[in-house]
Design a protein around this nucleic acid. Structure first.
Lengths: 246, 246
DNA sequence: GGGAATAAAAGCGTATACAATGGAAGCTCG
DNA sequence: CGAGCTTCCATTGTATACGCTTTTATTCCC
């Protein structure tokens, strides 16, 4: 696994000056958290994948204690599922959860658009355009993983422009979970966000037309949801009795 | 501090018995979590109060390990603040955070009302009425702490009736944080929710009038927010330069 | 030969021990 | 007498060790 492709600077930082076991412990844990989180969002860790504490501890060079903390945090964000005696695994969202997440996004992200349109600055627009461009480039070069993460980041950034940190954080989590939903129910080849959608959205925001942005976001999210093939797969205990009793 | 007034029965359990160390560990931790969470929401632990790990571990008869886990969970729900080398303390919400929380509640809780009105059943209405009654009784008997918790529980229960677990959980957290905000910015004597408001809301839901329920919820939340005295207390770094430079 | 039971191994849950850091108090020097 | 520095203590951060549960593999019996 070429994990070092986006290894944070802190990881490459040699502890030459101070073997700050505690000093950089916090950011180290944060870095590990982000590594695992990114791996899940980018579908490098697929839903259902087991995350053994020992293995993670060995990979990242920390003790199980730190890994457990990170795993709990991921569990609270519902990116991983903690089964009492079985350990952690990447969450496999149910169809109901998928619907809830997209309904929530519909309500919050759309509701935020007018305020975003009101507050967006030229610098913000530039940054959004840059993010959309990078996303398009990733999509074109076939890096689906990166494109998915950038798309989620775009939506979260957008929400953050509303000025409401609480709602922005919530949107961020919804986007992360959406990425998981895409991994389970998404059709390969048809990614979540159309490449030009985000650019169109930026244009409405530039015009200061909050209502149009809101309506467009609604269609945008509906399109993503519609692109999913929500088939309640009974992977667990495949109802053998029912199947063969007929 | 007469904290033992609702000391859990399990606290008397001697740690000698290794029986069920793991078995009831999960629910035990959950119980401890709820105890601390309730204490915060009921204002028995006031914002700024420090929560030392050793003290909590001793009180609840578990090791610091379990306490740390619970503290982290509370931190992720923003009920406690974890300062890197200083430990945990009950979060003291800022004025900005208070505004964000109430704006978020405005958006989500109001947006949920139509769906709630559509789905609410007779049994649900009965339960809601019961909760409202208990809240009224607590308020009348002077038990502000209990009333505050019941009020938050009412709002969360309401959101849960929408069928969207994700949004309901989010509302639950917002209500918890609102309780914290009330503790900091609320005027004593004027509690958050007027006693009859919830009953009125139930009536609109009973009529199936989602729009009126939505409008009423909006006024309700605005009333709560308006009752706060948001005075940005500059406890931290009192801007000495600005104060004495004029 | 197949199924079930038992034993062994692997992995998680909890506690305890140790190390490091920040704060506070006391001491010394100006 | 006050301020700064140093030392000590209180408290958190991290690791490791141990016990328990679950799972899997092997063996025995039908």
């Amino acid at each position: 696994m070429t994990e070092h492709k986006q290894m944070p600077a802190a990881a490459g930082e040699r502890p030459k000056r101070r073997l700050g076991k505690n000093g950089d412990g916090a950011e180290r844990h944060d870095a590990i958290y982000r590594h695992i989180s990114d791996a899940i969002i980018e579908h490098r860790l697929k839903p259902g994948a087991r995350l053994r504490e020992d293995a993670l501890a060995e990979v990242f060079g920390v003790s199980r204690t730190g890994i457990r903390k990170i795993l709990q945090r991921l569990a609270l964000e519902q990116l991983v599922t903690l089964t009492p005696r079985r350990g952690a695994s990447v969450t496999r969202p149910t169809a109901d959860e998928a619907k809830d997440v997209f309904d929530a996004r519909q309500m919050v992200e759309c509701g935020l658009m007018p305020e975003v349109a009101r507050r967006v600055t030229a610098a913000d627009l530039r940054e959004l355009r840059d993010m959309a461009r990078r996303e398009r480039e990733a999509l074109r070069s076939g890096e689906q993983s990166v494109a998915i993460k950038l798309s989620a980041a775009f939506h979260e950034r957008l929400a953050r422009l509303s000025g409401n940190a609480t709602l922005a954080e919530f949107v961020g989590r919804l986007c992360s979970r959406s990425s998981l939903i895409l991994a389970v129910y998404g059709n390969t080849g048809h990614l979540g966000c159309e490449s030009h959608d985000h650019d169109d959205l930026i244009r409405f925001l530039e015009e200061g037309n909050g209502e149009r942005a809101k309506a467009f976001m609604s269609r945008h999210l509906k399109a993503i949801e519609a692109s999913l093939s929500i088939t309640e797969e009974e992977d667990e205990t495949p109802d053998l009795h029912q199947i063969f009793s007929g």
